[in-house]
């Protein structure tokens, strides 16, 4: 079932891709123009994904609910890190990332906090001080 659904999704994307791609034209320049390659790519993609809908292959076992929740939590932490890196600054945001992902992955909370407290400043020192990648110590929220 999952393969069929994925086939439908890819088919829709490929169809939209081909449809929009076809419309790109340039009034001058090369013979082929920017619209032909998307069609060359999109049509085989439509055919292959359609064939997966009709003749699916392989079984997919999705994780059970508690694991799904953990995966969503991990994604939330990753996205939160991307958005809070600026406001919080590197060491603080990274501390949160390491503690969060560590706990989600099954580490003991106290150990994860110790890991974060050690590695967040250590990574900042390594990248910013030693290797010269500028990473803000304190974010926008602190001044």
């Amino acid at each position: 079932m999952s393969v069929r659904l994925a086939g439908v999704a890819i088919f829709m994307i490929a169809a939209l891709f081909t449809w929009y791609g076809r419309g790109y034209t340039a009034s001058f320049g090369d013979v082929l123009g920017p619209g032909v390659f998307p069609v060359i790519v999109g049509i085989p993609a439509m055919i292959l994904s359609a064939s997966l809908v009709v003749f699916p292959s392989g079984q997919v076992e999705w994780p059970e609910r508690p694991y799904l929740v953990r995966q969503l939590a991990a994604l939330a932490i990753l996205a939160g890190y991307a958005w809070l890196l600026g406001p919080l600054g590197f060491p603080l945001a990274t501390f949160g990332l390491i503690v969060g992902i560590g706990i989600v992955l099954g580490g003991a909370p106290l150990k994860a906090v110790i890991l974060g407290a050690l590695f967040a400043p250590a990574l900042w020192a390594l990248f910013d001080q030693v290797l010269g990648l500028p990473l803000a110590v304190l974010g926008d929220w602190f001044g």
Binding site: G102, G107, A120
Partner: peptide, 23 residues
């Protein structure tokens, strides 16, 4: 693994962020 992967995630973010500084 619980200790390794968070560090890997942090290093991945630093690397990608350093290419373009873009969220």
């Amino acid at each position: 693994t619980w200790a390794l992967m968070p560090i890997v995630a942090a290093v991945s973010f630093v690397g990608v962020f350093s290419i373009s500084n873009s969220i």
